[in-house]
Each structure stands twice: as structure tokens, then as C-alpha cells.
Amino acid sequence: MKIIVCIKQVPDTNDIKWTENNTIQREGVESIINPFDLYAIETALKIKNTLPDVEITVVSMGPLQAEKMLRHTIALGCDKGVLISDKKFAGADTYATGKTLATAIKSKLGDFDLIICGQFAIDGDTAQTGPSIASQLGIPQITFVRELKQCSQDSICAVREIEEGFETVKAQLPALICVLKGLEDTSRAKINGVIRAKNTVVDVYSMEDIELNPEDTGIKGSPTYVSKAFRPVHNRGECEFCKDSSSLAQKIVEYGGLHE
């Protein structure tokens, strides 16, 4: 069974700093594996533990420095790392990103049974790249996956967490799933994994390598673009401070507290 896990390197959003021009400072901000993607890897490793002959390939689209992150996933127990990297990918929205990854999967990875993505990336928070990849590859998707009930060579059964509860669906493979963060801790690197990671070559492919047209990726291939980015502003007036509890109580009543 061949599993592909798509991961993204993201800036640690807990560590965001602002420049004087109110833009996000990217230099010196630590890059991490998107936390949801760690659970995508965890899900793949679990399947590898239960089924025979499972091969996990981890794919990422990003700058060359993401190679280190892919190497780390091999230390965690994944088998191969593939980095899709090209300056021409810059500015890709979720449509172009989905297209780029789908093209890379088709041209460089060939047949696969299951693709696993994290449900959200903590920087963009769109939850769209997974469905975009599935759509471009013409395979079914299961999103908001809370847990896998069963995975065999030709089908997968998953529990989705939706607003009103839990929905179980079963998909024929090949399929793509987007997983939520689990409750349990994710795996740590093992010593033999670290050694293997050292000896594994991460394949790096450019736009030309995957035979993608420059019109189909990056800013050019993206239907959407950011026209303006700004810090959130609050248009509420000046805060009026109360000196004591009785004036505070008055305000609560004035604002509609106590009324049915």
C-alpha cells in the first residue's frame, strides 16, 4: 500500500512579530511543521503498523529549507521525502497549490492508494488545499476526520467530526483524507529513524521536472490574490472605565443584562 502525506512548513503563529509598516516579520521567525500535518503523519504511521508493505512518502511544496523538515519525517518513521520547490511557485493560492501538488504526484509518484493531509494549516487556515488536490486528481475526499475506523488495501472507513456530531463514511481507495488534530501525542524520532534520515536523499523537483506550465502555478496560476493585508482594527469607541461595582452594575443593566 502506498500512502502519500502532504505537509506544509509554516511560521510559528505564536511567534508572530510586526514590522514598523504593520506587515508580518518573516525573518527570524521559527518555521515548524504545520501541527495538523503531524497528525497526518501519525495517521499514516498507524496504518503502517497495522497493514503489511505500507510505504509512506511525504511531499511538501515550499522553499529548499523545507528539506530539513522532510528529513525529520523520515526520522519519525516515514520512508521517503519529496520536495517540490521552485521560485515560480511563489504566491500560489489553494487552487494553484492543489494543481502543483496534484501534478507532482501524477508525474513523480505514480500510483498511490491514500493521500493524507492535515485539515488546516495554521498560517492560512483555509482547509482548501486537500480538497483541491483530490479534485484535481479526480479522487474522493473525506474531510474533518477525527479517527480511522478501518483501513484495508482497497477501502477506508473514517469518522468525521461535524457540527452536530460524528459521521462515519466509507470510501474506496484511492482517496484523500484531511485529518483533525488528535488528542494523543504525536510520535517522536527514533534513533534508527534518525540514522536512516541521515542516509536518505530527499528528492527535489522543480516546476520543469514535474512538467508544469508556468501559467498554471504561482501568482499566474492563482485565481485569487491578496489586494490588501492589514492588522485587525476595532472600531469600538474609547473604553469607559467604571470606578466601582455599583457603576459597573448600572452599565450591565444599561447594556441589557438581567433582561429576559
Binding site: D93, G98, S135, F144, E161, S222, P223
Partner: peptide, 23 residues
């Protein structure tokens, strides 16, 4: 932008080769 909307909309936009702004 419910779980259903966020499952359905990207599938539609990809098929239409158009953009989708999330949430």
C-alpha cells in the same frame, strides 16, 4: 463556512477552475 460548506465549496471551485476565499 461550516464543515459541510468547507468540504463542498473547494470541490466546486476546483472543478470550475476558479478562486475560493476561505472562512
Amino acid at each position: 463556512a461550516t464543515t459541510q460548506g468547507r468540504d463542498l465549496a473547494p470541490r466546486i471551485s476546483s472543478s470550475l477552475h476558479t478562486g475560493l476565499t476561505a472562512d
